[in-house]
């Protein structure tokens, strides 16, 4: 029984970290309309930043400052934000699909950097030995799991509260205004580029927090954690849950992460031995089908944005015509 509770604690920890990242994407995409195709880059910046600042020293390698946990985590968040700021300056003036490709490319470039810069990131071997928060003072492994879950939930709550505050402030209304109609917003004296940059940076900082939390749980990070599959997962969470709605984003994160792990669990037990090799492929096909079906039949997600008129009727038309000007 304690085992099940222990696993559930862990599951919620991972789902919570994914939910934090999804909230970051929700700010960028749901509230601002920024197509970030490189979520994993900001996750990775947070993870590596936290590790470099808080991890132990390695011979022949930069970093290993062994800073206190909160400082290291904060540094990871700042690194992710700084990366987003540079990326934003370079790419935010681009069309949305160019932005998606550029950010996707940023993620590929960051993975390349992590894989090859042995002096900075340890190369493909990754970095190890992050002191997990409070582990030294907590005897029980189970209790550590609970404490860590509480940390993750606290960060999640903080991010949620912050985003809610933000989107209901004049800043948030301005963000939605430029998402809906950039020209009108511009006419009202808002600077779309500056607002978008802020949204990208804040969203990326949140993703970086997710990366920092992840690395402080596993105590290890390697380029293998920077593969594009994470970007895909987070997008799936947001689309299924409902973009523009924080509750939807969190629900999507829990559901998709649950489906992802549970289907692996179920497939290894249900699929006959002769087809075990195919289980992974079948799982991806199921997930792909789920995404496509969702977009076909419920494109607004399970919990759609709560604005008087649903955006995917009027706005889609508006976007369509504005694209063809």
């Amino acid at each position: 029984m304690i085992g099940v509770v222990s696993y559930l604690t862990f599951f919620l920890t991972m789902a919570g970290i994914m939910a934090i990242i999804t909230l970051g994407l929700n700010l960028q995409w749901g509230y601002t309309g920024l197509f970030n195709g490189g979520v994993v880059a900001f996750f990775g910046a947070g993870a590596y930043g936290t590790m470099i600042l808080g991890g132990p020293a390695e011979p022949g390698q930069f970093g290993g400052f062994g800073l206190p946990y909160l400082v290291a985590l904060g540094g990871g968040v700042l690194l992710a934000a700084a990366l987003a700021w540079v990326v934003g300056l370079l790419t935010l003036r681009l069309r949305h699909d160019y932005l998606a490709i550029s950010t996707f490319g940023v993620a590929v470039a960051l993975e390349s950097l992590a894989r090859n810069s042995q002096w900075l990131t340890g190369g493909a071997r990754g970095m190890r030995g992050f002191p997990r928060p409070f582990e030294a003072v907590i005897e029980s492994n189970f209790l550590f799991g609970v404490v860590f879950l509480l940390i993750v939930l606290a960060v999640l709550a903080l991010v949620w509260w912050g985003i809610e505050r933000l989107v209901h402030s004049p800043f948030g209304r301005a963000l939605r205004a430029i998402r809906e109609d950039e020209t009108a917003a511009r006419a009202l004296g808002k600077s779309p580029t500056r607002l978008r940059l802020w949204s990208l940076v804040i969203g990326a900082a949140i993703m970086g927090a997710g990366g920092g939390l992840y690395v402080s749980y596993t105590a290890f990070v390697s380029p293998q954690d920077l593969l594009p599959i994470l970007t895909f997962q987070v997008w799936a969470m947001l689309i299924v849950g409902g973009a523009g709605n924080n509750r939807g984003a969190v629900l999507g994160a829990v559901l998709i992460w649950g489906a992802w792990t549970l289907s692996g669990f179920a497939l290894t037990r249900l699929v006959p031995d002769s087809m075990q090799l195919d289980a992974g492929s079948i799982q991806y096909i199921l997930i792909g089908t789920l995404i496509v079906s969702m977009l076909l039949w419920r494109p607004e997600g399970l919990l759609p944005e709560r604005i008087s008129n649903p955006r995917n009727t009027t706005v889609a038309k508006a976007a369509h015509t504005s694209n063809k000007e």
Binding site: G3, V4, S6, Y7, F10, F11, M14, Y214, T218, S222, Q224, D225, L227, I229, L230, W260, T261, G264, F265, L267, T268, Q276, A279, G280, Q283
Partner: peptide
């Protein structure tokens, strides 16, 4: 008890957790 890590760190850690916690 065989589990697939899908060559993905997060999936592998989750599967290992399930093996250790649930299957003991």
């Amino acid at each position: 008890i065989l589990r697939d890590d899908q060559n993905d760190g997060r999936v592998g850690v989750d599967a290992a957790r399930a093996l250790v916690d649930i299957d003991q």
